[in-house]
Design a protein around this nucleic acid. Sequence first.
DNA 1: CTGAAAGCGCTAACAT
DNA 2: ATGTTAGCGCTTTCAG
Lengths: 339, 339
Amino acid sequence: MVTLKQVAEAAGVSMKTVSRVINNSPDVAPKTRHHVEHVIAELNYQPNQLARSLASGKTNVVGLLVHHSVEEMFKYPFFNELLGGITACLNQAKLDLLLRFMDKNSSYVELYDQQRVDGLILANAPLHNADLQKLVERQIPCVFLSRIALENNPSHWVDSDFVSGAESITDYLLELGHCHIALMAGSEHLALSHLRIQGYRQAFAKRDYPVTESLIRHSRLFMETAQVRHMLTDYWFQLSPRPTAFIASDDLVAVNLIRELTQLGYRIPEDVSVVGWDNTMLASIATPQVTSVGQQTYKKGFTAASTLLEIMSNATQSPVQIKLDMELIVRDSTGPAPD
Amino acid sequence: MVTLKQVAEAAGVSMKTVSRVINNSPDVAPKTRHHVEHVIAELNYQPNQLARSLASGKTNVVGLLVHHSVEEMFKYPFFNELLGGITACLNQAKLDLLLRFMDKNSSYVELYDQQRVDGLILANAPLHNADLQKLVERQIPCVFLSRIALENNPSHWVDSDFVSGAESITDYLLELGHCHIALMAGSEHLALSHLRIQGYRQAFAKRDYPVTESLIRHSRLFMETAQVRHMLTDYWFQLSPRPTAFIASDDLVAVNLIRELTQLGYRIPEDVSVVGWDNTMLASIATPQVTSVGQQTYKKGFTAASTLLEIMSNATQSPVQIKLDMELIVRDSTGPAPD
DNA sequence: CTGAAAGCGCTAACAT
DNA sequence: ATGTTAGCGCTTTCAG
């Protein structure tokens, strides 16, 4: 391993001068710089990032903490796209990404306290987590890809506007004449579930329609067909009257729901309408193609990363909280309510 | 930031003793250890990994270099699963993952030379790349998720057995009476393309059937519908007779191909059979469900990571080269050849 | 079992 | 414009 010291000796200059050259400091005579660069190339010298980081206090690494089991995350093609946006931005800034999946025992602050990263991005973080709140209190540079509290919270976040997304899909279904609209909101510990419920209620409130509480239900994300079947028989089909439209928690659940309903003899969308979320490729590949509320997933990742870069450079400032529009993509899985 | 030195002072012991405690060295009196642990907890001390790594020469980080544009990789739900396997294994070993997407200017050895990682996993690496070969020559701990040379090469790799995968799907189509079987092999610079061609040829050779060379074609992965359409009109539909079966380069291309063919009035599988690769969720979600040659993607990732761990601990040894079985999953997109 | 001293390879602060 | 001197926070000798 060639060290800076060896380069300095070989070039006949001090270590600091070599350091200046590799850091592009302007205070070096062009001639000296040229000479040093030559020696660096000759010796194939690579600065040791570890030593650099230790001395400077900067790692040039950003941590991505994913609050998901590994098994869950790869069932659903959403994460790919998010990661795409994040890495695209970090690449431009010449930063690297450290990826870690969280479980119950993992600490959110550890990676930062151990000086392994300069900042953090947190995906799918749960509501009301004390450890997470510490990140905010200690002003550790971090951006959340979801809201970690429903009320005001001085955290930085980039998230999709689930309230208006839910409102617009509910509006659309109400327009089509559906009045028994099932909402599979998502897990209770996620902000998005509560925000969807809020949007759903707003659509009803606008028209002075009463909301049937039993039609709003927290449910797991990424359910397989077997789980969807149980949910139908154990819950939704117990209701009277039965829902004529389902707002599924995500595209995968929508696809599996359509499959189950079809198997039970229902025609989609003539008998039942089904809506997905995220507008992933699943929605356009399934038959019928699935109406979905699209997140700007790639942009979400990119924006979160660039927001983090800003925060890391400007020390403290007021919370950056960015709401990205959601878009209703109407396809073939929704239609007028049956008589 | 609490340092080891401060802990030592607070505990009234030397730095080395504290160091021994945090490294679980046996040579510490139980009483001393207990006391030191107490002080560590009290002060909420976290060892600085940077300093540790610099002094010890170990980073506890593995680099994953993905030879894909960010745009490509998130079009296709294969990467997710691979990443799942890799992280599952690394998690167990308490190692972290540094993720980097490669472009033409990126260096494969840099991350290692800069002491940022202890070892590397390389996904989708191209054939015959000089820089890549350097990794092998210099005995840098690394595992490839594909073969980087078709002939013998002393590199460590974990890959699916594309030859027998291609052979079995070709066998199957020949059994069904297809004799004009189009093979969309994949990019020329990828080993998998050449291996597929080899398997395809073997199936024909076994029966003494001649291979029509124009039916074997390199093609891009992850093509969108528009690109698939062009490929059909510009190439495959120029052939006479037209193919009655297509072995697509991957599930996404298979799905898009089915869509295009359907739009052109062909019935699948009555008029044309289509096969995909990787057995991703796309294959089971599309209509008709797609016959696919499945990779054990999760296992591939997991095995690559565990192989790397072995290599990193045992210094040098003979090349580890692991071939994972592929499985033919017959679904509804393939059927007997038309008369 | 414990400790003192010497680095790991670099940068920062202060010279000159 | 360049060099000198201390560290960054830890681990590793090597002594006791």
